[in-house]
Nucleic acid binder design. Structure first.
Length: 342
DNA sequence: GACCCGTGGGC
DNA sequence: TGCCCAAGGGT
């Protein structure tokens, strides 16, 4: 019955009015929104909350204030500034993006959606966000906030992330995104989703869209968006090495592929270490400690072992003092373990 | 389409 | 505690 009677223009006006009064205007990346600052913030904000990103963004912009400084930076220093944010391919891609813009785009930051999406690490959402926030131009965005808001407002059923539902969501985004005031419009969508149309406790009582929201008028707000079926994550066991020498700790730089890619880490073993037999001495393997860590897609239970001999591995290894450790990008649970045991 | 890729906050 | 969720993208 009462399908939303709000035209795109009416929708835009309501959202812009709300954004002007109730939206966020003082986030660090909203100040001086250059393409580079918007790019950095949007990559950091992928799957990451605003309050988590803010200190990382400020530190990043201080160390890498422009594309050139990032493009020529050493990977280890880039990774150390991302340490703790997670999804480390974002950091590697951000450096690739800087090099791409300098080398392939003659230093001219791309401006169109079709060009923006070619930047490493930039997908459909981030391209739309850069168009909106950096250039104040047409750039549809569909992120977690918009998915939730649109699924409720338009009464879209089905699981977001499936091709059918996402197609419908992007279609709505393209239709309802204006050709002016794009910066405020996009910010309004995100802020509405973050502060009003929240997952668990939406503030429908103060929502300007309330009379036009299909989910609200049909009392289905908490049923939309359709929840994903939860799957059980597997348990994996890991083994790591703790080797100290002259007050230094041995670390290993991990491969770019896989978990904790390109971070420095305690050397990881393929299996539980066996007792090492040598001609003259028996070297005992001692358990230094344990830790557990839950990722998105599996749970890790790890044991850390000490021994005297250095295992040969294909990755670069290096001894670090406690002071040097602070300048490296280390996986968060590894960093915690080291600080506890060093 | 399925999987991979981190971490911290909120309840 | 355990679960959901967060300004997604790459393979």
């Amino acid at each position: 019955m009462p399908q939303s009677t709000l035209s795109p223009i009416q929708f835009q006006q309501l959202l812009l009015d709300w954004q002007k009064q109730q939206g966020r205007h003082d986030l660090p990346w909203q100040v001086n929104p250059t393409p580079y600052r918007v790019l950095v913030s949007e990559i950091m904000l992928q799957q990451t909350q605003v309050t988590t990103v803010i200190p990382y963004f400020l530190r990043w912009m201080e160390r890498f204030p422009h594309i050139e400084s990032l493009a020529v930076a050493a990977e280890d220093e880039v990774m150390s500034h991302w340490q703790g944010l997670g999804y480390y391919s974002r950091a590697r891609n951000l450096k690739k993006a800087a090099q791409y813009i300098l080398n392939e785009c003659a230093g001219e930051f791309p401006t169109t959606l079709s060009e923006l999406i070619k930047i490493p690490g930039v997908g459909r959402y981030t391209a739309g966000a850069i168009a909106s926030f950096a250039y104040d131009s047409y750039g549809p965005i569909v992120d977690g906030n918009v998915k939730r808001l649109f699924c409720r407002f338009f009464g879209i059923e089905g699981i977001p992330g499936t091709s059918k539902v996402d197609k419908a969501l992007w279609q709505k985004a393209e239709l309802y995104t204006p050709n002016q005031n794009n910066r405020q419009f996009a910010q309004g969508l995100l802020d509405m989703g973050a502060t009003i149309c929240r997952p668990k406790t939406p503030k429908c009582d103060v929502c300007h869209f309330q009379p036009h929201c299909l989910a609200y008028t049909e009392q289905r707000v908490l049923q939309l968006p359709t929840p994903k079926p939860k799957k059980t994550i597997p348990l994996k066991t890991g083994h790591f090495l703790w080797l100290q020498q002259d007050g230094k700790l041995l670390l290993e730089k991990r491969n770019e592929s896989g978990i904790w890619g390109a971070l420095w880490c305690l050397p990881q073993l393929n299996s539980e270490p066996l007792q090492i037999q040598e001609r003259t001495t028996k070297q005992s393997v001692l358990e230094k400690g344990q830790f557990k860590h839950t990722f998105t897609h599996y749970k890790l239970e790890a044991k850390v072992w000490t021994l005297d001999a250095v295992d040969s591995t294909p990755n670069p290894q290096q001894w670090f003092t406690a002071e040097q450790l602070t300048e490296l990008g280390l996986p968060t649970p590894i960093k915690k373990f080291i600080l506890k045991h060093l």
